[in-house]
């Protein structure tokens, strides 16, 4: 079994899995506490437009997708800050339009038949060295921003009205969170694909939230859980020859189920013990 680790593509897959898991633990936590899961989902799908443009103009895929996703994030931030009640309409709109743009540009690209499936469901085994560098750089930037502005980000996420009164630039930090989400979504697409990315950003985070009493521990916990699920999913995908993205998500979902059952049972036992003591 261990001989698979000697392949470069497998080493890259493991490093990429680790980098993306940590990033999605941090950013997923922010997405969940700010209730922007579907905003992130919208951005994920929109970024396919960027993939199409990149293919058409012969740009690096990550560059095209990142620029497009960041553009969508800034647009969404502006709309949701000004017209909160229109948020879901706008998510639906940008979600579909972005994908349509991507499909049309891929169609128009002569002689190049891009594998749509690899973007929809991820291709962790096709991670290049350049991808690894990009992911590492992004993770460093995210960790730096979240560390330096932890208090502001926490205040904006917990109580934006109060943060505003205390002189925190809520619009800036809200947009910053969305832009970081967009960039994380783009690297996560490589691992699980743009359809499944929401699950990677929410399942480990959901468990992490239950186990944490502060945002920072939630981020760390989610990152660790996400790493475990990704490695386990990757291992199963290799062993049974199934799509890696789907296998990672199913491992996460089954773990969540197990966690909920255990959590409930523990609580029941705890309550019974309490009653007996009384």
């Amino acid at each position: 079994m261990l001989e698979i680790l000697s392949f470069e593509f497998m080493q890259n897959a493991i490093v990429a899995g680790l980098l993306v898991s940590i990033a999605s633990g941090i950013i997923g936590s922010l997405i969940v506490v700010n209730r922007m899961v579907f905003l992130a989902g919208g951005i994920a799908h929109t970024s396919y437009g960027g993939i199409g443009l990149a293919v058409y103009f012969g740009l690096p895929i990550f560059l095209g997708a990142s620029l497009f996703a960041v553009g969508a994030a800034i647009l969404m931030a502006a709309v949701t800050l000004n017209q909160r009640d229109k948020t879901d309409t706008f998510i639906g709109l940008i979600w579909a339009v972005g994908m349509a743009v991507g499909i049309v540009f891929v169609d128009m690209t002569p002689g190049y038949n891009v594998d749509l499936m690899s973007y929809l469901f991820g291709s962790i085994l096709a991670v290049s060295n350049a991808d690894i560098w990009y992911m590492s750089a992004l993770l460093v930037v995210i960790v730096a921003i979240v560390t330096i502005f932890y208090r502001q980000i926490l205040a904006v996420s917990y109580d934006s009205e109060y943060a505003k009164l205390r002189g925190v630039d809520v619009r800036f930090f809200y947009t910053l969170i969305l832009v970081m989400s967009a960039l994380t979504v783009v690297i996560a697409i490589k691992i699980v694909g743009l359809i499944l990315v929401i699950a990677l950003l929410t399942i480990p985070v959901y468990i992490g939230e239950k186990l944490s009493s502060s945002l920072a521990t939630m981020m760390a916990m989610s990152g660790i859980l996400s790493t475990i699920f990704t490695f386990l999913g990757l291992f199963l995908s290799y062993s049974y020859d199934i799509t890696s993205g789907a296998s990672i998500i199913l491992v996460s979902a089954l773990s969540l189920l197990l966690f909920l059952v255990l959590n409930n049972t523990m609580r029941k036992i705890f309550n019974t013990v309490k009653k007996i003591k009384k």
């Binding site: 506490v33 208090r151 926490l154 917990y158 109060y162 002189g167 944490s212």
Partner: peptide, 14 residues
């Protein structure tokens, strides 16, 4: 929200 009481209070310093 995963936040401790003291962290909420510390927001007053921001």
């Amino acid at each position: 929200f995963p936040i401790k009481v003291i962290e909420v209070v510390l927001m007053g310093h921001i």
